[in-house]
Amino acid sequence: MTEPVDATQEQGTSLWQDAWWRLRRNTLAVLSACLLLVMALACIAGPWLSPYGYEEQNLLLGAAPPSAVHWLGTDGFGRDLLTRILYGGRISLMVGLIATGVALCIGVTWGAVAGYCGGRIDAVLMRIVDILYALPFMIFVVLLMVVFGRNLLLLFFALGAVEWLTMARIMRGQVQALTQQEFVEAALSLGLSQRVILFRHLVPNALGPLIVYTTLTIPSVMLLEAFISFIGLGIQPPQSSWGSLIADGVETMEEYPWLLIYPGLALSVTLFALNFLGDGLRDALDVRAAKD
């Protein structure tokens, strides 16, 4: 629909524009988004720009406090902490994004099918989700890592598998609520095909909560990864993630507190930013707020 628009026609504001406008006025959320961007860029580019390798040891130096040469100090093997944090950040962020992606794919498909089909299919699918919900999933992730060894790919998948359940529930709730809306009935009575109804009427309206929940899932996945790495089952040395760096830092925190504090700061600040951004998005995308 790209006809020339009459000069007399007033342009409307879509709900997306409205949400975008509200989000931009939320200082905390904007700051969080900027911070995340900076953090992500630093983690991607940092290890290349750094004069040190993440596994480059300097045993003569040993653990040194922050200085002009090593901005955040070095660890017991004389490895540059900043480089290791940035490198670990890559892995932590990657785990967060990929595992969330996995959860998103499974959860959305599962929930949408259950919500849209309804009836017996819905009952069976959601029954399975209920059963899986009651499983001590974290223990299974630990178990998987023990049994199959520390495998990064497996970790993505395992963490994604923990989070998809909630995703599926949210998606199903959304689709179910939307299919009962009168505008979907109107679309049905216009004789539109299922595909058109799905992609023009259901998906755009279900997207908001999904975006919000996805943003809030990333920090919880990163937390899980840190947990797994902390008890020594995630990332294998000399690779690092923020969780494993904290675990290393804990062992020597009395003598070399910076080894605990800086990785901890990196993790906490990122989690903060993600949560604030998620909250901001929730406020901005809330359709009810748009009505008032």
Binding site: S14, F183, E185, A186, A187, L190, H201, N205
Partner: peptide
């Protein structure tokens, strides 16, 4: 055969312009 619904708030897709709604 067509239908007109009760709740004008729920019977229009909130993410489509009037043009899109009527053109569909």
């Amino acid at each position: 055969m067509q239908m007109i619904f009760q709740d004008p708030y729920a019977s229009l897709n909130p993410r489509m312009t009037i043009f899109d709604t009527l053109a569909e």
